[in-house]
């Protein structure tokens, strides 16, 4: 039971990191990223390949850096155009990463993947019980990323990003460098996805392309919409709830004997899709709406001040 709980918490942590990253890109900056899974996979593979020579810290930093570079590249290409192009380019990126991972055997091991990924702080763990170290490591990582992103959201940078999201023309008229701000926001989100990917790699110690399916992207979107776009705290609650619910469906198979594994995963993904659509229609602000910071002080009579 303890082992299962650890697994669950680590899974939630990875999902929360991915969710926090997407929340920064989409929730705060208004930039849709349909290629979340591509960035997570890129992070995981970079960490897996570079941790042996550089150590886990180096691997993780390399993962974050590479994902930030890839994000910058994609953002520079498409953000100057409409929102639609970023969505198209990122969904393509996600697919291309998967194809490259499968086919570039010399680097990624192809479908077999990469085994024996070194883990952080192995020497601290008592023999045969690495969970004792992994659990706090995952939670600390989530806390660190949460703190960094929350600080950014509360900073002037975050305020400008929200302004750009809500009305790019107005922000630009006020002399804000809209393109640069968007590229930065997208790159920061990408870096966080790289960190999430490296945690994934450290946790499993074995990665292959089949672990990185569009499910990861779907979960992240569900978590952001459920938690409330723009609210990091809401996101943590959203990601926790979604992952726990999703994990709970594992036991559904024991109750409903007629459903096989493939059907169960189809049911899960379909339910995620339904959840996204229903939440968008019925509760677009999510469980914990983005706080309208200090707006009421300026507009005491109006609610929110939008």
């Amino acid at each position: 039971m303890i082992a299962y709980l650890t697994t669950l918490i680590v899974l939630v942590s990875v999902a929360a990191l991915v969710g926090l990253a997407l929340n920064f890109q989409w929730g705060v900056a208004g930039l849709v990223n349909f290629g979340v899974v591509g960035f997570v996979a890129l992070g995981a593979y970079t960490a897996a390949l570079l941790s042996p020579p550089l150590g886990w810290v180096g691997g993780m930093i390399a993962a974050a850096t590479l994902c930030a570079i890839a994000s910058t590249f994609l953002a520079l290409l498409s953000i100057r155009l409409g929102d639609d192009y970023l969505a198209i380019v990122t969904i393509g990126f996600g697919e291309i990463v998967r194809i490259l991972l499968l086919n570039e055997d010399w680097l990624t091991g192809g479908a077999l993947g990469i085994p024996n990924i070194p883990r952080p702080f192995v020497s601290l763990a008592p023999a045969g019980n690495y969970d004792v170290v992994l659990l706090p490591f995952a939670l600390l990582l989530v806390a660190a990323v949460y703190l960094v992103l929350e600080t950014l959201v509360r900073s002037p940078f975050g305020r400008v990003l929200r302004a750009v999201r809500d009305d790019a023309t107005a922000a630009s008229a006020l002399g804000k460098p809209v393109l640069l701000l968007r590229v930065k926001a997208f790159a920061i989100g990408g870096a966080a996805m790289g960190v999430a990917g490296s945690l994934h790699a450290f946790y499993l110690t074995y990665i292959d392309p089949s672990q990185f399916t569009s499910i990861i992207t779907a979960y992240a979107f569900m978590a952001v919409i459920a938690g409330g776009r723009g609210s990091n705290t809401g996101l943590l609650i959203g990601a926790g709830t979604i992952m726990t619910l999703i994990e709970a469906t594992r036991f559904l198979k024991d109750v409903m004997q007629v459903i096989d594994g493939a059907q169960l995963s189809a049911l899960r993904l379909g339910a995620i899709g339904l959840g996204i659509v229903l939440l968008l229609i019925l509760r677009p602000q999510g469980l914990l709406p983005e706080p309208h910071r200090r707006a009421r002080e300026f507009f005491p009579t109006e609610k929110g001040g939008q």
Partner: peptide, 27 residues
């Protein structure tokens, strides 16, 4: 609600339709 909401919704619909097929017919 703007094109971003619409395209995220279309992604949700994509998940629903694809997985109806997968649920009914397997891989």
């Amino acid at each position: 609600r703007g094109s971003i909401t619409l395209l995220v919704a279309s992604m949700g619909i994509a998940l629903i339709l694809e997985n109806i097929c997968r649920f009914a017919f397997g891989n």
